[in-house]
């Protein structure tokens, strides 16, 4: 039973990884532009005179660096070999910084920001959705629904800008920009952590405020169908107290699709939150990817994509493996 459940899922996981990472290799090579030629052109455009032999030498070493040496198969094999040693090649635009260290710099910011906003909004939205369904006519529930419905269509950047102007310009409670104060000493001390949280507060708040509505509505929709289910009606007919019905019958069943949604969203973290990062000048993967795309920095784009692929599929695998704990109907199937 254990084998039947785990082995196919692991096989599926590695297949997805393999195909995804292979596509990351293939797609840039289908593009007409040649990064090595671009680089050389840029050099000659600066008016430098280069001796043809030196150009040839330069081309060769650049190809070596970018993994463009030899035939397709040879390139592909060395691509995997480098991947396993954690080498994603150098960035074109910030030569010779390796891509991996650029990602390493941005990733903690993004993971911190998105994990915090995702988990806060998920928890609050889910609980509020359950409460709304369980006490549909209470004033609080109705007000919540109204707010959630009203907030949902507000474009994110407007909400973010309003918060920024309100809470850091008109009432300067929070800093305008950045991940931490310039010149502060980075380290694991209370002062720095407090400074970090102060800077992260607005970006997180802006995301939480809008995301709560989504989780709330999804939970409400799922749970309001469950209220009509025979087992919930039967629990009522058996005289169980409301709290038991809400938590063990309605919420317990409605949480299953919520968890799936959470898993998917955790996977998308690696793409970063571009607009948040721009509005709040917050460091992160979004800006990194954006500038990489603008500058045609293939290695960096590929590196971020690989992280995204691994992130999404690992999150899905974890959710898939946790699913039987939540829903006994998928157990041993």
């Amino acid at each position: 039973m254990f084998k039947k459940f785990f082995i196919p899922r692991l096989i599926q996981y590695f297949t997805v990884l393999f195909i995804g990472i292979t596509l990351v290799f293939v797609i840039p090579r289908l593009l007409p532009s040649d990064p090595v030629a671009t680089q050389l052109q840029r050099m000659t455009a600066q008016g430098q005179y280069l001796d043809p032999a030196a150009v040839e030498e330069l081309r060769e070493s650049l190809e070596e660096l970018y993994g463009l040496k030899g035939g397709m198969l040879q390139q592909y094999l060395s691509y995997w070999k480098r991947l396993f040693s954690g080498d994603l090649g150098p960035s074109f635009t910030q030569f010779p910084t390796p891509v991996i260290s650029l990602i390493k710099m941005s990733l903690p910011w993004t993971v911190g920001l998105l994990l915090a906003s995702l988990s806060i909004s998920w928890i609050i939205g889910t609980i509020l959705g359950g409460v709304k369904v369980s006490f549909p006519n209470s004033l609080v529930a109705r007000a919540m629904e109204l707010v959630a419905m009203g907030m949902r269509p507000i474009p994110y950047y407007i909400m973010a800008l309003v918060l920024l102007i309100l809470l850091s310009f008109i009432f300067p409670i929070f800093p305008m920009a950045g991940g931490y104060s310039v010149g502060s000493k980075v380290g694991l001390n209370m002062r720095f952590i407090k400074d970090l949280l102060r800077h992260a507060f607005l970006p997180i708040l802006s995301m939480v405020v809008l995301e709560i509505g989504g989780w709330f509505l999804q939970m409400r929709n799922v749970a309001s169908n469950l209220v009509e289910e025979d087992y919930v009606v039967y629990a009522e007919a058996s005289g169980l107290p409301k709290s038991k019905i809400v938590f063990r019958y309605i919420m317990r069943n409605a949480i299953i699709p919520q968890i799936t949604g959470l898993g998917l969203n955790i996977g998308f973290i690696f793409g970063g939150a571009l607009i948040t990062e721009i509005v709040f000048s917050y460091p992160g993967m979004g800006t990194l990817l954006y500038s990489a795309i603008l500058a045609g920095d293939y290695n960096l784009i590929m590196g971020i994509n690989i992280f995204s692929i691994v992130g999404v599929s690992t999150a899905m695998l974890i959710i898939d493996l946790l699913y039987p704990l939540l829903d006994p109907r998928v157990r041993y199937q």
Partner: peptide, 11 residues
């Protein structure tokens, strides 16, 4: 109840 198929909590 009617239709006891679904009156027991599935989870």
């Amino acid at each position: 109840p009617q239709g006891s198929m679904s009156v027991l909590n599935p989870v």
